Simulated scan of single mutants.
Amino acid sequence: MWRTDEESFSGPAVRACAGIDAVPRPSPWGIWVPMITPMRAGALDLPAAARLAERYVEAGVNGLVILGTTGEGSLLTSRERQVFTAAVLEAVHGELPVMAGVGAVDTRAVCAQVAELDAFDLAGYLVPPPYYLRPSDEGIRWHFNEVARVSDRPLMLYNVPKRTGCGMSPALIRSLLAHPRIAAMKECDSGNLAARCAGSRDHVLCGEDTAMLAHLLGGGAGAIAASSHIRPDLFVRLLHLSQTGHSGAARALFTRLEPLIALMFSEPNPAPVKAALALSGEISPETRLPLRPASSALVQRLEEAMALLPPPYKERERNLAA
């Protein structure tokens, strides 16, 4: 079960990272990477997935979310979801918590996904409201209560109206966060982050990358950021600066990151993320239809934006000492 102490949400690599103090927290926090699912010739590229997961451990991120929107989870078979989960968990060796995305139109299908994955040592499940149906608050409440019955592991609410077709009201969010098995929420509506998180900001992770800086400087718990795939060390640094009172340096760093963040969402996710990782030779840019790989024009712009990012901090320190 996902414990409610600091050890549950950050492994040894995180606690040693960038001077971030290990402070007990009651819910997930920090920078979580919503991992892409590498593919090659139509099949899962599990060695590439393991290499990516190891890289994120080394970078000091606070957790991984697999099988979500960025992970093309809704396009994977049940068997693929289980095999991918096993590969990522083996790669991180318990040094990072790993959460799985589950979602569908039918609540029973979501419960079935949870039941299939619950044999794995996951930190919990990222759960949106049912897609497409646009249920009432009471219908959404029933949905989450039913999913919570399937597993002892905690849930994270996933409020993403532009994908599901419905948003969760502030009153509903407050009541759901009081559920003993609902630990946090991922908020993807930047216009609602401040208003909806009032009084419960420590339970809310930003799911809109462009709003990440404001959320972190305002005391938000952290972010689940697709753009953090590319240079996770810079996003960990951004978190550290924001949490230690260095707001000016945090703003300066975020200004350097903004061009890349904008490009990450200029074509359907996760095609830009995969294209950027492919430029570094880490994966193939392949997506699963009906999603298409990033356009050649975007690939060129990504390459230019990545070249303008600061060097890794260890490399930067060596250059300054030379």
Rank of each mutant, 00 (worst) to 15 (best):
Pro268His: 09
Ala53Ser: 07
Gly19Tyr: 00
Ile283Asn: 02
Val92Met: 09
Asn269His: 10
Ala225Asn: 10
Leu177Met: 12
Ala250Met: 09
Val14Trp: 12
Ser151Asp: 05
Ser266Val: 01
Tyr313Thr: 13
Ile36Thr: 13
Ser227Asn: 03
Glu138Phe: 08
Arg292Val: 12
Leu291Val: 11
Gly207Trp: 03
Met35Leu: 12
Phe9Gly: 00
Arg231Cys: 13
Ile173Leu: 15
Pro129Tyr: 11
Ala262Pro: 01
Leu234Asp: 02
Val65Leu: 15
Gly60Val: 07
Tyr125Gly: 06
Ala48Tyr: 05
Ala211His: 05
Ser78Cys: 11
Leu155Thr: 02
Leu155Trp: 04
Glu7Thr: 13
Ser228Val: 06
Arg149Met: 09
Ala183Asp: 00
Asp5Asn: 11
Ser242Met: 00
Glu304Leu: 09
Phe9Arg: 02
Gly73Leu: 04
Cys17Ser: 13
Asn145Gly: 15
Asp5Met: 03
Gly94Lys: 04
Leu155Pro: 00
Asp202Arg: 02
Lys162Ala: 14
Thr37Asn: 07
Ala307Arg: 14
Pro97Gly: 00
Arg318Tyr: 07
Glu304Pro: 01
Pro293Ile: 10
Thr4Val: 10
Glu138Arg: 14
Cys111Leu: 06
Leu239Met: 10
Leu234Ile: 05
Pro28Gly: 02
Gly167Phe: 00
Val114Leu: 12
Arg153Gly: 12
Ser175His: 10
Leu239His: 13
Ile230Met: 08
Asp189Tyr: 06
Asn192Met: 14
Pro130Val: 10
Asp5Lys: 01
Cys166Gly: 08
Leu89Ala: 04
Arg81Gln: 09
Thr210Ala: 15
Tyr158Arg: 08
Ala322Glu: 13
Ser151Met: 05
Pro130Tyr: 14
Pro38Gly: 10
Glu282Cys: 08
Arg231His: 09
Leu277Pro: 01
Ala112Val: 06
Gly165Arg: 03
Trp29Cys: 07
Leu46Asp: 03
Gly68Val: 06
Gly139Thr: 11
Asn319Leu: 15
Leu216Arg: 03
Gly63Asp: 04
Pro310Ser: 06
Asp202Gly: 00
Pro128Ala: 10
Ala119Pro: 06
Met306His: 11
Ile182Ala: 02
Arg25Met: 10
Asn192Thr: 14
Glu72Lys: 09
Glu304Arg: 12
Arg153Met: 12
Glu258Thr: 15
Met35Lys: 08
Glu146Leu: 13
Ala115Phe: 08
Ala178Lys: 15
Pro161Asn: 03
His143Lys: 11
Glu138Trp: 11
Pro154Met: 00
Ala321Ser: 15
Ser169Glu: 07
Ala48His: 08
Asp45Ile: 06
Leu289Ser: 10
Tyr56Leu: 02
Ile36Val: 15
Thr4Trp: 03
Ala178Gln: 13
His215Leu: 12
Ala262Arg: 14
Ala184Trp: 01
Ala252Gly: 14
Thr70Ala: 08
Lys162Thr: 15
Leu239Trp: 13
Arg237Met: 07
Val114Phe: 07
Arg141Lys: 14
Val114Ala: 13
Arg15Leu: 12
Gly219Asp: 05
Glu138Asn: 09
Glu58Pro: 05
Ala214Leu: 11
Val98Pro: 08
Trp142Arg: 15
Pro259Arg: 08
Glu146Ser: 15
